[in-house]
Design a protein around this nucleic acid. Structure first.
Lengths: 215, 215
DNA sequence: GTCTATATGGCGATAGAC
DNA sequence: GTCTATCGCCATATAGAC
C-alpha cells in the first residue's frame, strides 16, 4: 500500500505525535512491569506513574482508566508473541518448534512471563477485567493446537494413547506450569529443554529443522 | 501416649476453648475463600470479617495481622492434602496414584484449587509474604517426586528419554497448568483423567491398584 | 471475646490552572 | 500534555469500652 517514491506528508506534521507515541510506549513498559510484579488488582497507577516519571493525572491523560491501561498492555504484548509462533501453519511440527522457540525467548523477558503467569491466575475470577480475554485466549490456543496434533496424528506421528485434544491440553498446561516453577526457581530450570523432552514422549518430531521466520 | 481408660480432665474445662476453636475455623474457611477469589494482596480483612459475620477488630483478636492469617490458612490446608498423597512411600507408583487421587479430590474443592493457583503466581514476587513458603514447598515436592521416579527407573518402568528430574518437573508443571485451565474453563476438563493419560506416556503403571489410605 | 471509634495512609479518578 | 489539588473510598491496625 502506498508505493509512491516521494515521502507522503504526515497527517500530523508536528513532532508531538511521535513524542506522544513514545510516552505511550514508556507507560506501557512500566505498566507491564508493575502488573507483572503485583498483579492488576494490587498494582497501582501511582507506581506506574512514578516509574515513568510523571504524575498520575498525566498518565490518565493517555489512558483514561486503569482497565483501559491493562487492555492496552495485553494488546501490546500480544503482537510480539504472535509473531514467534506460526499458529496458522498446517505443519503441526512447525507449531511445536515455534512453541519451544517461544519458551526460549520468554526466558529472556521474565517480566512478560510474570505478567501472564500472575494475570492468568488472577483472571480466573469471573469479575476480573481480563477474565474474558484469558478465556478466549485459552480456547483459541487449545483449538489451534488440537488441529495441529490432529494433523500429526494423520501422519502417524502421534504416539498411541494420546488424543489430539489431550495433547493440546497437556501442552498448554506444561507451558503454564513450567513458568511458575521457572519464576519461583529464579531461572533454575530450562523451560525450552523441558518442553522438548516432554513433547518427545508423545510425538515424533525432528527438532533440528529451522522454520523460516514469519516476520 | 496416654493409654489410661478414664478420660483425663481437659486443661481448659470451660466451653470457651471449643467455641474459640470453632470461631478460628470459621475465620480460616472464609479467609481461604477470600484469598482464593482475590489473592492475598487484594483480598481484604473487611471482606473476611463480613463473611464470618463479625467486625474487623474481632477478627484481629484471633489473628493479630493479615500475614499471620495467611500463614494459618496455608498451614490449615496443608494438613488435609498431605494425608491424600503418601509422599514418603518407597513405592513410586503409589505416589503417582495418590497424585491422581488428589487431583480428583481437588475438583470437589474449587476454592482450594483457586487459592493455590492464585497464591503460587502472586508469591513468585520475592517480597510476597508466602514467597518462602512456596519456594520451599516446590523444592520439597520436586525432590520427593524425583526420588519416586528414580525408584521407578530402577524397576525399568520409566520410558526412555525421561530422566527422574525431568519427569518430576513435568508432573508438577502439569498439575499446576491443568488447574489454571480447569478454573478458566469452569470444570470443562477432567484433571485426573488428563494426568492419567499423560503419566501413561512416560511411565508404566497399573491404575487399578487401590492403595490403603494413610488416615 | 467482641464491639465502636479512630488513626494513618494508599487508592482511582476528576477539576482546572498553565 | 502535564501539573497541583482535591474528593471519596477502602485498606490495616490500634485503643479502649463492655
Amino acid at each position: 500500500m502506498n508505493g509512491e517514491s516521494k515521502p507522503v506528508r504526515a497527517r500530523k506534521p508536528r513532532g508531538e505525535y511521535a513524542k506522544s507515541k513514545a510516552t505511550r510506549t514508556a507507560i506501557l513498559d512500566c505498566a507491564l512491569e508493575v502488573f507483572a510484579e503485583s498483579g492488576y488488582r494490587s498494582g497501582s497507577l501511582r507506581e506506574v506513574a512514578t516509574r515513568v516519571g510523571m504524575s498520575e493525572a498525566g498518565l490518565l491523560h493517555h489512558f483514561p482508566s486503569k482497565v483501559k491501561l491493562l487492555e492496552a498492555v495485553l494488546d501490546h504484548r500480544d503482537e510480539r508473541s504472535r509473531a514467534m509462533v506460526p499458529l496458522d501453519s498446517p505443519d503441526g511440527a512447525a507449531i511445536l518448534r515455534g512453541l519451544v522457540r517461544l519458551a526460549d525467548y520468554n526466558a529472556s523477558v521474565p517480566g512478560v512471563v510474570e505478567l501472564y503467569c500472575v494475570l492468568s491466575a488472577e483472571a480466573t475470577s469471573v469479575d476480573h477485567p481480563a477474565h474474558a480475554y484469558f478465556v478466549e485466549r485459552y480456547a483459541l490456543t487449545r483449538r489451534t493446537l488440537e488441529e495441529a496434533f490432529a494433523a500429526l496424528a494423520g501422519e502417524g506421528k502421534l504416539r498411541g494413547g494420546m488424543t489430539p485434544r489431550g495433547a493440546a491440553i497437556a501442552l498448554i498446561a506444561m507451558m503454564d506450569g513450567l513458568q511458575v516453577q521457572w519464576l519461583l526457581e529464579d531461572g533454575g530450570i530450562d523451560m525450552a529443554e523441558e518442553l522438548r523432552t516432554l513433547f518427545g514422549q508423545f510425538v515424533e518430531i525432528d527438532w533440528a529443522v529451522v522454520d523460516s521466520p514469519a516476520t
